[in-house]
């Protein structure tokens, strides 16, 4: 898997609510931009790309123990606004299937949505200097690494419980608590980083090959 969907029961409720509020805000901005640009006609494309992402995730790559999800590619095809909405739709459906908690849809959408945004952003910057195929691959890899870092950041921040800072137990100083916390986050980051990097590399390779195929068969999609 190139993605880590945070499940229920790992993050404190206050952060879950904040995640939903932030996601709601971003969705509001995206929809406003879509309306201002009269892009409502892409609704069906949004729905269908959501289906493609879910299907891509369901295909076991028999030869390697990973699955892909094409979020960066969706960002490239749909643009940042629809890309974020696609991330929300996919996360919501995945949450109903148990992949990522239903209470964590907000935070997971922010993480996966960032991948669509950065995928689109880096692709549009890089395509000025590189071929579209290479740009797509590199932008997918950067986007996945950023979203992976975001997962680590979210876990790091949201697990810094307030009691840990404000309610110090006898014999424990604030620095002891923070030291213990940073150790566990370090161990977490160390464990998930190879997964993110390997998954990201495979997804980047596949994204680049898909773009190459689309360029040959139906180039207007990437215009």
């Amino acid at each position: 898997m190139s993605h880590l969907h945070i499940p229920d029961g790992v993050i404190d409720p206050i952060w879950l609510i904040l995640g939903y509020i932030l996601t709601g805000l971003v969705i509001f901005i995206c929809i406003n931009k879509i309306r201002k640009r009269n892009e409502e006609g892409k609704m069906a494309l949004l729905g269908v790309m959501g289906a493609v992402m879910l299907l891509a995730m369901s295909v076991p790559l028999g030869f390697i123990p990973f699955h892909i999800n094409l979020t960066a590619l969706s960002g490239i095809i749909l643009g940042p606004n629809y890309g974020f909405l696609a991330a929300f739709i996919v996360n919501l459906i995945l949450a109903f299937l148990g992949h990522g908690g239903i209470t964590v849809v907000g935070l997971n959408t922010l993480i996966v949505g960032s991948e669509a945004l950065f995928g689109w952003l880096f692709y549009n910057i890089l395509k000025r200097f590189l071929t579209r195929r290479t740009s797509a691959g590199i932008s997918a890899l950067i986007a996945i690494i950023i979203s992976g870092l975001l997962v680590i950041c979210v876990i790091s921040i949201t697990n810094l419980e307030p009691e840990m800072v404000f309610h110090l137990h006898e014999g424990h100083s604030l620095s002891d608590n923070l030291h213990q916390h940073s150790n566990s986050i370090y161990a977490f980051a160390l464990t998930v980083s190879p997964i993110i990097l390997l998954g990201g590399a495979i997804e980047a390779l596949i994204t680049s090959l898909i773009v190459s195929y689309i360029r040959k068969v139906k180039p207007d999609i990437l215009k």
Binding site: G41, A44, L45, G47, V52, I206, S212, Y213, I214, V217
Partner: peptide, 19 residues
């Protein structure tokens, strides 16, 4: 990847027809 590319192209055609 070619297979997924094909599915994406078909999906985009499908979305146009659906819309």
């Amino acid at each position: 990847s070619s297979l997924l590319g094909l599915v994406i192209i078909r999906s985009i055609d499908l979305s146009e027809r659906m819309y």
